[in-house]
């Protein structure tokens, strides 16, 4: 692979490259239901969603939005370098929303023989409403001396 990311190249305060996803279509909920096995009709059936209080109909799977964040992360750090990834679901996403994933490097240190970088991530919609806050750590290679 070409542009390998090295521990030395990452600085605290650096931005995680942004990723824009969407606008989300209802069809994507159907795809995600089938892929993930989460068939809660809250995500695919407008009548059901309205009956349980969602006035605009279906809402996105939270895990789909976490998947967008995972896409943003592993577009930047190689998948095999990812050590930990956690999120808090802060708000509901609806079809039509466009999700912007961004993040910041908050710490880097060597631990148990690994060169770890720690980052915060956030997913917001086009109006700036926060859908997910989270963090991840990744073990990066050192440049060969």
């Amino acid at each position: 692979m070409g542009n390998e990311l090295y521990f030395e190249d990452v600085k605290i305060g650096d931005a995680v490259p942004e990723l824009s996803k969407g606008p989300i279509m209802k069809l994507q909920h159907v795809l995600y239901a089938g892929a993930s096995g989460d068939f809660n009709p809250l995500h695919t059936d407008d009548d059901f969603a309205k009956a349980v209080g969602m006035k605009d109909g279906v809402i996105s799977h939270g895990m789909l939005i976490m998947g967008f964040v995972g896409q943003a992360i592993t577009a930047w750090v190689p998948r095999k370098c990812l050590r930990k990834f956690g999120v808090r679901f802060a708000g509901m996403t609806k079809p039509g929303n466009t999700i912007m994933v961004s993040g910041t490097v908050t710490d880097k240190r060597q631990e148990n023989g690994e060169n770890l970088v720690f980052c915060e991530v956030v997913a917001r919609d086009e109006g700036g409403d926060v859908k997910i806050t989270g963090n991840f750590s990744a073990a990066l290679p050192l440049k060969r001396g």
Binding site: M1, Q28, F68, Q71, P78, K80
Partner: peptide, 27 residues
């Protein structure tokens, strides 16, 4: 379903070229 175009998840040869044994699972 996520819309992640990263070839390591989609194509075994691309995954091997990137240093994996096969297509790894997304996070």
């Amino acid at each position: 379903a996520i819309g992640d175009p990263n070839p390591i998840y989609l194509d075994r040869d691309a995954a091997i070229r990137a240093g994996y044994r096969d297509t790894p699972v997304p996070p």
